[in-house]
Nucleic acid binder design. Structure first.
Lengths: 344, 344
DNA sequence: CTGAAAGCGCTAACAG
DNA sequence: CTGTTAGCGCTTTCAG
């Protein structure tokens, strides 16, 4: 059997193929395909026609190597199933859309070692910038970020020292603010219900800020309950039941996120517990989901869309003031009292 | 002012830098860093030490160009905020984890033109494979996929003709199955509530299968209501209210997804409507969220985790039987009757 | 407006 | 076990 005439029928098309098919030099083909430099209308047409006919897809690997330019922005987040990160992504995409930059997401599952790997992998593709959640990273991660040579934006949190730029809210302050609102409403026997948070630094900071305010009034948490994994709504119910049983005299339940808060709310309503009279409830995040609940859970908006937008502006060098890097932007979360804190 | 002595202090390290710092040839450095070929323990140590000390991160662009190998798998999905795709992603990641392949996600927002762009961008990075949702694509997209020269797996749906491989469920059959269960339970005045679905082909197929069964019994939908955008839970409430008002004698509400179904369920409970006596309810997807609701909504599990896993197996050439491509795997969604269909 | 030459940083394929 | 030689497919730069 003779071998097929062509070396590898599965090989993808190259600029050369388009060049031969159109009778135009590779260089000019490249120019046409990138809309760079002046090319006569006739040759442009011929090239485009040939490229289209062949179904040519440029090889960005080769292009990036030659031009030392990569139109990718790495986005590193802890989780996709969190409701909060998709919204951040939306903000990022919105802004990057008309910059020629493309977001590439990596997920760490809240694991520092995993984060290290993801950062390493991302950087090995030499992206134009990096956006990543949080200010806490392993030493090795910090070193890589500092060396990256591209804009790095740490998002969500500003309580700490960023490598380069940061966009986020102060979770400590957010915790304080919520505590103050709760105290002002007259609640005194307050329990905290949240994730087991070895690596959820932001939740930890909120709790710290929260307890700070309590301490100032000579109070401390009446109870606390932690969970990990599983359906957040369901967990919220279970934890609420547990706390209410263990510490029957609590008058407020502060949840580390809206999903478990929603579960708690549904549980209380099921049980006929008077909310916010007998117990008040509050969560954190301002997730859209809450809009459909029988009662609006008190929460705090984490400015996710703006965080996404601003971080993308920084990475793409589109800040209005023309600042280059090292920016720290603090956003102010708004308290949404909803219907689960009684009015003072 | 004299220019700085080094060409560009911001340039990233190369193999050559490590080579010089360790006194080992570039080639051997490359071998060490990739764990390829035999290298003496001494030189290995020396290289690793130098690389670590310098903070060298290999340039995958150059590596990929030279080796004609890219350890990336493109995953193209309509949306991230859908609850369903994160789970698919989990399945994919699980399997890819120990293959050296990395998923890269692209989002289309249910827009065919957007999908075309994303496919084009993805392919321009010459990934090792592509996983994408759905069987319906623009002609140009189909052409690119067919030309890609790498495994392409279309997921979620199998009612149609895939370019290469497919893993999913038959949504038409799923719609039929649900209709049969509802009919068997004795409901007859059935309404459909769903997304405005110009591009949600799978929802459309479910509805088609559903209506097929109704028609077989000489019935047709008593009412239908569509929405787009907004908080699904809230929309579910509003739509339910609208249908119940417009067509007071309906006895069943079939929702195109669990989120709006959950909203409908909460509304009915709020209104004191007897579920499933006065009206029955059902959704689609089997989202984890449902576990925390006051009553379990009837739904159908879409096998998302398995879809993710299997598609990743195909792309990475890990199918147990050693099949190469062109596989069509149909999974069977299970009906979860929950508490919102009365027993027959 | 168009082309030719010279790499980008790495790895395959051989020689030692 | 280690080094040398060619490129990978594109873009930059500099001549026409």
């Amino acid at each position: 059997m003779a071998k097929p005439p062509h070396p590898d029928p599965r090989r993808t098309l190259t600029l050369r193929d388009v060049s031969e098919a159109s009778g135009v030099s590779e260089m000019t083909v490249s120019r046409v395909l990138r809309n760079r430099g002046d090319v006569s209308e006739t040759t442009r047409e011929r090239v485009l026609e040939a490229a289209r006919r062949l179904g040519y897809v440029p090889n960005k690997i080769a292009g990036a190597l030659a031009s030392q330019r990569v139109n990718l922005v790495g986005v590193i987040i802890p989780s996709l199933s969190n409701m909060v990160f998709p919204e951040v992504m939306t903000g990022i995409s919105d802004v990057l859309e008309d910059t020629g930059l493309q977001p590439v997401v990596g997920v760490t599952n809240y694991l520092p070692e995993r984060e290290e790997t993801v950062i390493y992998e991302m950087l090995s593709w030499r992206p134009s910038g990096l956006i990543l959640a949080g200010l806490e990273h392993s030493e090795a991660s910090q070193a890589m970020l500092a060396q990256a040579g591209v804009p790095v934006v740490e998002i969500m949190d500003i309580d700490g020292t960023p490598v380069d730029s940061a966009v986020g809210i102060s979770h400590r302050r957010a915790g304080r603010k919520m505590a103050e609102a709760i105290m002002a409403a007259g609640y005194r026997r307050i329990a905290f219900l949240g994730t087991q948070m070895p690596n959820d630094h932001r939740a930890k900071k909120r709790l710290a800020g929260f307890e700070e305010v309590l301490a100032r009034e000579g109070l401390q948490l009446a109870d606390r309950e932690f969970y990990s994994g599983g359906s957040a709504l369901l967990k919220g119910r279970e934890m609420t039941a547990a706390v209410l049983k263990r510490t029957p005299d609590v008058d407020f339940l502060y949840y580390s996120n809206d999903m478990i808060g929603a579960g708690g709310l549904l549980y209380c309503l099921d049980q006929g517990i008077d909310v916010p009279g007998r117990v008040g409830l509050a969560g954190f995040n301002g997730v859209e989901l809450l809009d459909g609940l029988p009662r609006r859970l008190a929460t705090m908006d984490a400015c996710r869309l703006d965080i996404g937008r601003l971080s993308a502006e920084i990475v793409s060098g589109k800040r209005p003031n023309g600042i280059i890097g090292g920016e720290i932007i603090e956003l102010s979360p708004t308290l949404q009292p909803g219907d689960t804190i009684r009015s003072a």
